[in-house]
Design a protein around this nucleic acid. Structure first.
Lengths: 336, 336
DNA sequence: CGACGGAGGTGAAGCGATTCATTCACACCT
DNA sequence: AGGTGTGAATGAATCGCTTCACCTCCGTCG
């Protein structure tokens, strides 16, 4: 494997000069520079990041740890973060905790060993204890799609209460009075907040909280949604509308309705959450609460870059909360 | 930042001993070992991968470069590869070339600088020239979902000709005689091979090649499929069946049919390719050619591990070709 | 009693880059 | 002529770890 010394020898200069050619080319005389560069090309020299990093103390990689790569929402977050990081010259390592606290721990300690420049993370561990390792190593991190109680922790999230409210306001305005909320594991903040928003919307409309029934799905994926859909049909008093904690669940519910030959939206309106690409692509296009996923990834990465690249002194920790937006489509528009 | 020397000092041993405690604990006396371990815990020491790696010469990371993270097919490949690599103690860096040759180049040179242990890649560059960098650095790689003409290049792929044949055999058996193939950019091997399979099926059934019309989509995503769907409806002689080069296109076509109030499958049968999760979840569940995506990721990672971890001498380069499988669902089953 | 061996530890050499104080050559000024 | 300033290049120190040759005890055996 060819190293900087080989290049120096071949070019008849010192290693310091080769390093300068690579990192501060303006310090090197034109003639020497081109000579060295041609030797680099000829030998196919590739500098070793590990050596560089050892001296520098920190790597040029930003880590992104998401809850579920099977959810296109997180894929969108990742793409926003990635574009931003790469524009700043950092590589991105995308990892998937699959909602498992132990996977999360493993990844975070891997990141610490790698001395990554910073971490974007949607924590699986509700206690937030997993992040202590990063803290004690002095590795900056930004929470994505989650707010911390601690004001010294940066975060970018979307107002889930507002989102839940938007969804149910829409259903109430369309005349629905018996609505089901398909939620998930209650320790997931999002699931909780979206329901709170739904209840708030009912209250504001002067409707009783009993107008909303909750069905809790095992996980937040399509299969669980299908299951919730059939449970929903078994309810004594069949509702006329469903609001789902995410689009994967909503797609599952939609499929269950189709299997039971229940017309959507005429007999059952459905509203999802996230507005993933497949929501619009469903054969009954799904009304959904759009989260600015790409923007969230971008903002989080920008925040991290600010803390990590710029002068840490002039970085103010902050919590950014974005607003969701209702996208109305066929699944909640009767009479079309 | 606390280093191995701090630990050594605090524990009253030499750095060599601390290193042994971490890497070969059986060489250290019980008492010393526990003492060192407790100091490590107390100081919150985290070893530096870059230093370790600098000595070792290679990192403990496997890279995976896919064509499109927005396609759940690749997400599945990634999850298979990841599980395998992590079981072997390697971290995985998943990156997305987004079909761009220049992005691909950038990532590959990033990998080379990182001295990653190996690379799994679905190349975007049809010339295969992008991989020369890895070759000259001696970084092993395995092609995923692609076969190389060069027998010294490992690969894991699925027989796309067989897949195309399965799809069209199925449609022909159901009586379809006017079939549209929705393909994509012709330089994509998969698109080409699947069509070749389709034509082979027609020939075997004694039907003329003219029974298959091709519509070429700009890209391989849902929006392009929607577009292809409406173009399809504008054809003079309307076909009775569509075979799409992937499920994203098929979902788009399905949506176009729905918008035009054309019944699927009665007026138009649809067959997709990949069998992504959203295929089964579509309101008209999609018949699709299933690719063993997770297995492909797993096999590719195993192949790479064999070359990279074991003795390279007893590694035989090989090309594994898996067989696809037809999954019949509602979108091609009339009379239900 | 001295040689031997094994267990437990030590400490210095290196991995491949970056960086910085230093040296060198040369032109310019007084 | 001597001093000075400048642009260019040098080479040694350093980052944090692993590894390996070597050292020290101490019990055992011939």
């Amino acid at each position: 494997m060819v190293g900087i010394k080989d290049v120096a020898r071949q070019a008849g200069v010192s290693v310091g000069t080769v390093s300068n050619v690579i990192n501060r080319p303006d310090l090197v005389a034109e003639e020497t520079r081109t000579r060295v560069q041609s030797v680099i090309a000829r030998l196919g020299y590739v500098r070793s990041e590990s050596a560089r990093q050892l001296r520098a103390g920190a790597s040029r990689i930003m880590a992104l740890l998401v809850l579920d790569m099977g959810n296109p929402f997180f894929v969108a977050v990742a793409s926003g973060a990635e574009r931003t990081a790469r524009a700043a010259g950092l590589g991105v390592m995308v990892c998937n905790s699959a909602q498992s606290v132990s996977e999360e721990r493993e990844y975070l300690s891997l990141f610490a060993e790698q001395r990554v420049r910073g971490v974007l993370v949607t924590p699986a561990d509700p206690t937030g204890r997993s992040l202590d390792g990063l803290r004690s190593q002095g590795i900056p991190f930004v929470l994505v799609d989650r707010v911390s109680a601690d004001p010294s922790v940066c975060s970018v999230s979307v107002d889930d209460v507002a989102g839940g409210r938007l969804a149910v306001q829409h259903l109430v305005a369309a005349g629905h009075r018996a609505i089901v909320y398909v939620g998930g594991p209650p320790e997931v903040t999002q699931v909780h907040d979206r329901k709170a928003g739904a209840l708030a919307a009912l209250a504001e409309a002067g409707l009783p909280a009993s107008a909303l029934t909750e069905i809790s799905a095992e996980r937040l994926d399509v299969a669980a949604g299908r299951d919730a859909g059939s449970r929903l049909l078994g309810l004594g008093h069949r509702p006329t509308a469903v609001f789902c904690a995410n689009d994967l669940l909503a797609l599952g519910v939609l499929q269950a309705m189709f299997a039971a030959r229940i017309s959507v939206p005429d007999e059952m309106a459905i509203v999802g959450y996230d507005d993933i690409e497949f929501a619009a692509a469903a054969a009954v296009p799904l009304t959904s609460v759009r989260q600015p996923a790409v923007a969230m990834g971008r903002l989080a990465a920008e925040m991290l870059l600010e803390e990590t690249v710029g002068d840490p002194a002039d970085h103010r920790h902050r919590q950014t909360v974005l607003q969701p937006e209702l996208v109305v489509r066929g699944s909640s528009l009767p009479g079309r």
